[in-house]
Write a protein that binds this DNA or RNA. Structure first.
Lengths: 118, 118
DNA sequence: CATAGCACTATACAAAAGTATAGTGATATT
DNA sequence: AATATCACTATACTTTTGTATAGTGCTATG
């Protein structure tokens, strides 16, 4: 194994890392994803409940973000065949497992704020 | 302690959480922050080195992001009084400690990709 | 029969983030 | 004297992200 080959390996490896980090980032970044995930961490909720829970969000944004989160496998949408229809949103296993990532971010955020405020 | 009071406490507490998470997100989100931090994880580097290291970044973006990261206490800028001037960028302790957050994000990203790809 | 609630969608617009391209002022090299 | 290097900055532009406002089709209630 020469230096160039191992350099290539390092690059490919760090590329994989960056891809994985970006997968995670895409799921939680933007103005509304975190509030939505936060609101669903302990309960399933309906559209109107989310809308009431998350201050200032418009139905357009809520609808858009819910679709994206569903596509990304973070939440599950269930339509009940009642009248009027009832639609429920709940986190998937993946969505629930974000809790660990968020905890780590809370810890870093608090620690960093304390370091910077000295 | 009545129900309303404890609800208020929960809200305030989760607000603190959200603030801490956003502190962390602000430091790593955007197109170029992660590549820059990644490039500095193992070495201090000069402007031109970073520019060469990070494919397709423009000097405008590099300069802008470096400024922001410095302001946020993630990296330290050192100017050497040589001719021509030499400017070095290196991660602060806070910057280095991001490694743990990034590791958690890598783990979640890989795990999630595997779950979704089934 | 008007009004309200549910779960959204449509259209137009504004703000933020990122890109392209060129240029600065100092010195050093050919 | 022309060209190159370093560490950027300036200006104009495009793309992405988010906002504002109104409206849809359904049914239930007063």
């Amino acid at each position: 194994m020469n230096d160039l080959a191992s350099l290539e390996e390092i690059k490919q490896c760090s590329t994989h890392y960056v891809v994985a980090i970006n997968d995670t980032l895409n799921v939680i970044s933007g103005k509304w994803k975190l509030p939505i995930i936060g609101s669903l961490l302990y309960d399933k909720k309906r559209f109107k409940e989310l809308e009431a829970d998350i201050e200032k969000i418009t139905p357009r944004m809520l609808s858009k973000e819910l679709k994206e989160l569903e596509l990304n496998g973070i939440l599950k949408r269930t339509v009940y065949d009642t009248i009027p229809v009832k639609v429920e949103y709940e986190l998937t296993e993946s969505g629930q497992s974000l809790r660990h990532v968020l905890d780590t971010m809370v810890a870093w955020g608090l620690d960093h704020r304390q370091k910077v405020m000295v």
